[in-house]
Each structure stands twice: as structure tokens, then as C-alpha cells.
Write a protein that binds this DNA or RNA. Structure first.
Length: 216
DNA sequence: GGCCAGGACACCA
DNA sequence: TGGTGTCATGGC
């Protein structure tokens, strides 16, 4: 299994090149982006983040002060703006109350403790928690998303109903726990999912065709 | 004009 | 545990 996962990785990297994720200037921006991109196109998230920057409130302290209704107005382009405003508020409130508003203090937690802490915050589920751990805290957890499940299922490496935990274990049980590897791998899976594997039922005519168990 | 994006939660059985 | 409804905009 390890060899197959490594072949997929190298095929994607050869085809697309390094993705330089996460597209953000700083760790806190990664977190806000991770919440805003839940079931939402990244182009819409960019508009919302730009609004926050132009309003000068893309910081834990500022977001703690602003009324939730005003925050919802600013992130309007990202969709689900009322729900996401509550989620952002929930995060910065926890950060303020438990860590004095310091991401460094929160990220000093051991990786499993950090994951539990993030999952206990309203609006942060498994994928958002793992995105924060990998791309903001820079610790080695494999981020699973909808593309990940579709791609490995189509390659014949899992069933199409595999759980988040099962998919995460598929990668973490067979690959070294390397933050840079997981960073690039997930980014490449998203890139590939956007470009190719979305509509094709099998992986015909894409850079992973040779690795598909359904071929030949 | 319908479909879908780098999900999470509440509620139900 | 697993299935369904809800939250909502913008691009194609």
C-alpha cells in the first residue's frame, strides 16, 4: 500500500508541481480560511478574507470585539455567513479565554491534545481541525476531504463509503508522519480533484490512469 | 436555471 | 453509527 500511495504522490507532483499551500499570509489567516471554506468555493472565501483585511479586523482581538452581525456582513460572499460568523466567534473566544489570545500557546499542545481541543470548539469538525493542525500549526496530520475519498475510491484503494477516520488511517498508517509530505499531498489531491476526477467515473485520461486498479 | 464548491451541526431512528 | 435537512453565495 505504501508503494502505491507514494506512486500516486509522485505522479501528482510531477504533473502539477508544488502547490505552496496554504494560500495565506499567516497562521491565523489559515484558520479563518479553513472555517470560511467549509463547503464553499475558495474564490468566495478570498472575497470574504479581503473584506476582513480591508476592515482591519483579521486578528483574534479584533474579531473578539466585533459584533457577530457585523462579522456576518463582512464575510457575506463566502456563504453560510451567519453560521460561519458564529464559528469564527467561537474560535476566537476559546483562544482568548484559554490561551490569552495566543496561537503559539494553543499550538504548544501535543498534537492529539490540540486535535481534541479544536474538535471541542463549535464549528470545527475533523477536516477543519486537521487543516488547522497541518497548515497553521505545521504538525503532521493527514487532511481528508471530499476529493480524497473520491480519488482513492476510484483508484481502487478504498470503498466509496470509507469514513474520515478510515481514510486518514489509510495514509497515516502507510506513510511517514511528515508535515511537508502531508502538506503537499493533500494540496495535490485537491488540485487533481478540481481539475480531473470530479466528473470522470474512472480515472481515464488523467495523470493517475496508470495507477488505477480498474484499468487492465 | 440548475448544480456544486477544500463541512459541520441538529435531530432522528 | 448512519441518514437527512439546514446553512447561502457566486461561478459555470
Amino acid at each position: 500500500m505504501r508503494q502505491e500511495l507514494e506512486q500516486i504522490y509522485h505522479s501528482l507532483l510531477d504533473h502539477y508541481g508544488p502547490q505552496h499551500w496554504w494560500p495565506a499570509d499567516e497562521p491565523f489567516e489559515v484558520i479563518i480560511g479553513a472555517i470560511l471554506t467549509q463547503s464553499t468555493a475558495w474564490t468566495n472565501v478570498e472575497k470574504a478574507i479581503l473584506n476582513l483585511k480591508e476592515a482591519g479586523i483579521l486578528s483574534p482581538a479584533s474579531l473578539n470585539r466585533i459584533p457577530v452581525g457585523e462579522l456576518a456582513d463582512l464575510i457575506h460572499p463566502s456563504g453560510y455567513y451567519n453560521a460561519k460568523a458564529r464559528k469564527i466567534k467561537a474560535f476566537v473566544e476559546r483562544l482568548g479565554e484559554s490561551y490569552g489570545g495566543s496561537l503559539e500557546r494553543m499550538f504548544a499542545l501535543h498534537i492529539t491534545a490540540l486535535r481534541r481541543e479544536l474538535l471541542s470548539i463549535y464549528g470545527i469538525g475533523q477536516e477543519t481541525a486537521d487543516s488547522i493542525i497541518l497548515y497553521a500549526a505545521r504538525k503532521p496530520v493527514f487532511v481528508v476531504d471530499a476529493y480524497t475519498g473520491r480519488i482513492v475510491a476510484r483508484l481502487g484503494l478504498s470503498t466509496n463509503k470509507a469514513s474520515y477516520t478510515a481514510l486518514q488511517a489509510l495514509f497515516m498508517d502507510h506513510l511517514p508522519h511528515d508535515e511537508k509530505l502531508y502538506n503537499e499531498y493533500h494540496a495535490l489531491l485537491v488540485r487533481h480533484g478540481k481539475e480531473t476526477c470530479k466528473r470522470s467515473p474512472l480515472c481515464h485520461h488523467c495523470c493517475l490512469s496508470d495507477l488505477c486498479r480498474f484499468h487492465g
